[in-house]
């Protein structure tokens, strides 16, 4: 198993994709931080936002690092679908015919990649905040305002989304279809459920809502799970997809 994990890890670091996506995630996090601090008038006239010293403002700015989940889910999808796209699935499954083990190694490596994305984005976010707030003379309550805890939650969500990405990719071998389907779901379909009364009861258990439960970015007045439940529900989706993919695609003939 350790051999397979090393092999999967090498697959990630030897192509540009993983690094490029990390840069994208960092850029998006930085953009979020900068935009929020810059647009906050810090209590100036005509600005209705709470000042930078407010705990909720600080948490909201820190949550910028959480946007990296978009990149980690796509990386997870690509890590597995690229095997079928470029037929590296052949040497991979020739060297390890126990295909389930390969999928497990991929899930673990994807989680590791997600953690690295999460930590990197959190570190960048924290660094920008620390420098900018110091320049403005505003104190940051890293612990008292729950910022470190929320960053931890964000990192967990980013890591779990990478696992979900593997699950989706195992189930839907077609790379483009898997990526577009996932993004359309997260950005279009799931937000729609807010306005459909029938599915509102199920809403807390949907992937996006479960993620929001962990990061604290709760949407509207809808009920949410608590952070741990949300994390487990999200992880459950990843594993469910992976098992489904194992049943329906991976066990079948490898192209």
């Amino acid at each position: 198993m350790i051999n397979l994990i090393r092999a999967e890890w090498r697959k990630v670091i030897t192509v540009k994709l993983g690094w490029g996506m990390l840069l994208g995630a960092l850029a998006l996090a930085a953009l979020g931080v900068v935009a929020q601090i810059a647009s906050n008038g810090n209590g100036a006239n005509g600005n209705f936002l709470p000042p930078l010293s407010a705990a909720e403002t600080q948490r909201s700015i820190a949550a910028s690092s959480g946007s990296a989940y978009l990149f980690s889910v796509v990386v997870g999808i690509i890590l597995i679908t690229t095997e079928f796209r470029h037929f590296t699935s052949r040497p991979t499954f020739l060297i390890e015919p126990r295909r389930g083990l390969v999928v497990v190694a991929k899930l673990l490596v994807a989680a590791l990649v997600g953690i690295i994305y999460g930590v990197a984005c959190a570190a960048l976010t924290a660094a920008i905040m620390a420098i900018w707030f110091a320049a403005l003379g505003v104190n940051i309550g890293w612990v008292s305002n729950g910022i470190l805890l929320s960053m931890l939650g964000d990192t967990a969500v980013i890591a779990i989304f990478a696992v979900v990405g593997i699950g989706v990719g195992v189930l839907v071998r077609n790379q483009i279809a898997a990526i577009i389907g996932t993004l359309v779901y997260l950005f279009v379909l799931e937000p729609l459920t807010d306005i459909i009364p029938l599915v509102q009861k199920a809403y807390p258990y949907l992937p996006g809502a479960a993620a929001a439960a962990v990061t604290g970015a709760n949407r509207g007045s809808l009920a949410h799970l608590n952070a741990v439940q949300g994390g487990l529900v999200l992880l459950g989706y990843g594993l469910l997809f992976a098992v489904g993919g194992w049943l329906f695609t991976i066990r079948r003939d490898i192209p």
Partner: peptide, 24 residues
Amino acid sequence: LEATSFHPGRSARNHLRVFCAAAG
């Protein structure tokens, strides 16, 4: 197997090192 099985963005050496790792 026919049709080549490589990631186009990976170097030849890294391609082989991936499978060195997998095969121990």
